[in-house]
């Protein structure tokens, strides 16, 4: 009878992260959560895809905390929201005949819609990604960008700040006006998610 204890859907950590029990996080030791981040059910985060070659700057000037730096596959900032079924995966490529994955960096207040697949290199802060979006390998999205539903961002694309992108393949279709940036704050969304 003790099969269903009174547990909520989310595990809440000391730093305020709300992580669903039904998400699939692989390689937890290589993932950094900045705090107050929501991870919903069926989200896949691939922390096991670590960088396999040392970064060029550290090979010239090796520092003692080198090992710690290289052990991060996915870094996520504060107040991020990952909707149901999205996938975060560090991008990989071959350079000079050596294949390696590279860290996926996500800043603060990033919203990722349901079913989206993120293989970007960097997502800036206050980025809103809609549902069913595919962000290609090594894409760089700067701050305050809105990606419309179903967009496919090609590999290596760089999206400047305050742009709206959409389409297959994604193009810049508009700009975010100065007054519109209020909707990007995810603090209220974080508060609304919980076990009750």
């Amino acid at each position: 009878m003790s099969k269903k204890p009174a547990k909520g859907e989310y595990i809440e950590t000391d730093t305020g992260n709300k992580v669903s029990r039904k998400c699939q996080i692989i390689g937890t030791t290589n993932i950094i959560l900045g705090g107050k981040t929501v991870i919903q059910a069926e989200v896949i985060i691939r922390g096991d895809l670590l960088r396999s070659v040392p970064s060029s700057s550290s090979s010239i000037n090796p520092s003692p905390n080198d090992k710690q730096q290289s052990a991060v596959a996915v870094a996520i900032g504060r107040y991020c929201f990952f909707s149901r079924g999205c996938a975060l995966r560090p991008p990989g490529r071959s350079t000079k005949g050596v294949f390696s994955h590279y860290p996926l960096k996500i800043s603060d207040h990033v919203f990722v819609g349901p079913g989206s697949v993120i293989e970007a290199a960097i997502l800036g802060s206050h980025v809103h990604i809609g549902a069913g979006v595919v962000v290609g390998k090594f894409a760089i999205i700067k701050d305050y960008v809105k990606v419309l539903d179903g967009a496919i961002i090609p590999a290596n694309m760089v999206i400047p700040s305050f742009s709206i992108v959409g389409g297959r393949p994604a193009r810049i279709v508009g700009e975010i006006a100065e007054g519109e940036v209020d909707g990007f704050d995810l603090r209220d969304l974080w508060r609304s998610i919980g076990n009750n």
């Binding site: 096991d48 396999s52 990989g92 071959s94 294949f99 390696s100």
Partner: peptide, 9 residues
């Protein structure tokens, strides 16, 4: 090469 890397990961 990619498969070799994945073998370790």
């Amino acid at each position: 090469r990619q498969a070799d890397v994945l073998r370790r990961l």
